[in-house]
Design a protein around this nucleic acid. Structure first.
Lengths: 79, 79
DNA sequence: GTGTATTTGTTCGTATGTATC
DNA sequence: CGATACATACGAACAAATACA
């Protein structure tokens, strides 16, 4: 699923994969996404890379992080 | 005893030191090895490093951990 | 029965060093 | 040089189960 040798950075690929799980409803609002450790194991990357991926999702507003608790899927914007 | 600036990672050095104590019989089968907190203090390292060292010993099959209990020296393999 | 201390489990935050492209 | 990525290490906080007085 992740291509370490591709042109797209691994952390972007992982962020994209998680974003899809959110879009699909696999990961619901206010529910935790995989922890950094789980991402490390699931994708076989270093923690720094896992963190980078999460930071990417946070930057896009898809998730929010609670220190020492975890990272959760943002609530769908009211409309 | 532990060299933080050496080429060998601190957690490996600590794992090695404890492995020697086991090999020497200083730590007997089914007896607890030092807790993570004790390892922290004895070697002056962070808990994450102490845990890493214990994980290393577990990986080698030298010890087994009982959640909320402690980590114990594995029984000598029957032969 | 009740509280306290101990121990491992788990999480995110941060920094440093190395290597590669 | 900067971005990416890995490994190591320290810090801080809280949870949960166990052990014991």
């Amino acid at each position: 699923m992740i291509d370490p040798d591709g042109p797209t950075p691994v952390y972007v690929q992982i962020a994209h994969a998680i974003a899809e799980r959110i879009a699909r409803g696999d990961l619901a609002p206010n529910r935790p996404i995989p922890s950094e450790t789980q991402i490390q194991q699931e994708y076989g990357v270093a923690r720094a890379t896992a963190r980078h991926a999460v930071a990417e999702l946070r930057k896009r507003g898809l998730v929010y992080t609670v220190p020492q608790r975890g990272t959760y899927v943002s609530e769908t914007r009211k409309r």
